[in-house]
């Protein structure tokens, strides 16, 4: 949040005007969706075996099970690419909601311990309930994400200086270190390192249709919920006083917001593993482009987040074929300079 968004005079509060650019936002939405469609088609076509775009079209709309190429597309590439798009949207919107609600410019599911908590929960699931269904995994993943963010905010609010962004990031880093270490211990003890290595590094390679069938509706509902909540989030982002003054039930909005964030982060981690920085970069970028109205920020973040992960996954396959580069590491390479830029630039309350 930029302080410039705050109305200078408290008397003018009732007619809050936030800086927003609906035109730019509509352009981003439309252009982004077109680009996303193209990107997904490209991602389906490119890989260890290149497939021509017309064949991709045919495989999707006139599926012929006799052709290996169609099989590759249907069973391997399509779920993977759709998974990437869904996960990207989930991470980005979770980050946007967290940044808006807490007015913390460094909020991100990876930085604040949600991803590590969810990964640890997954490690426990693999160890103690190896046969658990994907739905079950997802449920534990939510709980893990909740535990992670609960500890981070608990430590933050119990401490002397209060909930400053830097305190939250530091607590997030420590909680992540703890959960990662515990997951590693569990992995070694139960000899499930192989199954888990995939989650540590992050990747959408193994995504299956069964998973898509579950995560797609969940994420879509969560996204609709967040859009419904977006007006309230905009008001919260202006500060608690203003939001309360305008008759917002801040407690209720916060609760709903946190639930949506947990669902989005938990789902995304259960598919792709711990990928950080998406929820940091995308909302910031979106805010620069469309202004501070969350009714636009949330849908635009969803589209741009999908784009980022779809292309990151494409890059992960292209850099060193047939090896796959962990997508989490790739996104971190973009995310870290951005994080450093924010850390150095932000003067307010950091």
């Amino acid at each position: 949040m930029k302080p410039s968004a705050l109305p200078k005079d408290p008397q003018t509060v009732p007619k809050v005007k936030v800086r927003s650019r609906p035109l730019a936002a509509s352009l981003i939405l439309i252009g982004g969706i077109i680009l996303l469609a193209l990107g997904m088609a490209l991602a389906v076509a490119v890989g260890a075996k290149d497939i021509a775009l017309p064949d991709v079209w045919k495989a999707v709309f006139h599926f012929n099970p006799e052709l290996t190429e169609h099989q590759i597309i249907r069973e391997l590439r399509m779920p993977r690419v759709i998974g990437a798009a869904v996960v990207g949207a989930a991470f980005a919107v979770a980050g946007a909601i967290m940044q808006g609600m807490t007015r913390n410019p460094l909020a991100d599911t990876g930085l604040l311990g949600l991803n590590a908590g969810a990964s640890f929960a997954l490690a426990l699931c693999f160890a103690f309930a190896p046969g658990l269904s994907f739905l079950g995994l997802m449920l534990y993943s939510f709980i893990g994400a909740g535990a992670g963010v609960g500890i981070v905010y608990g430590i933050g609010s119990r401490s002397k200086g209060g909930l400053t962004p830097i305190r939250l990031v530091l607590a997030g880093a420590a909680v992540s270190a703890l959960f990662t270490a515990l997951s590693e211990g569990v992995a070694l003890y139960f000899k499930i390192g192989q199954d888990l290595a995939f989650w540590y590094a992050g990747g959408v390679a193994g995504t299956q249709w069964v998973q898509i069938q579950i995560i797609l509706p969940v994420v879509v509902i969560a996204l609709l919920g967040s859009i419904a909540l977006s007006r309230s989030i905009t008001l919260l982002s202006l500060g608690d006083d203003i939001a309360t003054g305008l008759g917002q039930r801040t407690g209720l909005v916060r609760l709903l917001g946190v639930l949506i964030v947990l669902v989005l982060a938990g789902t995304a981690v259960s598919v792709v593993g711990s990928v950080g920085f998406v929820g940091l970069i995308i909302p910031h970028l979106t805010r620069k482009l469309v202004g501070v109205d969350y009714r636009w920020i949330i849908p635009c973040s969803a589209v741009l987040g999908s784009l980022l992960i779809v292309f990151a996954d494409l890059a992960a396959r292209m850099i060193n074929p047939p090896q796959e580069t962990p997508i989490g590491a790739l996104v971190a390479l973009i995310g870290v300079p951005f994080f450093l830029y924010l850390a150095v630039k932000e003067r307010r309350s950091l």
Partner: peptide, 15 residues
């Protein structure tokens, strides 16, 4: 803050 970021970046670069 910078240290946490740099450590994350270098770890990713290593991978």
């Amino acid at each position: 803050l910078v240290g946490i970021g740099v450590a994350a970046g270098i770890s990713a670069a290593m991978i």
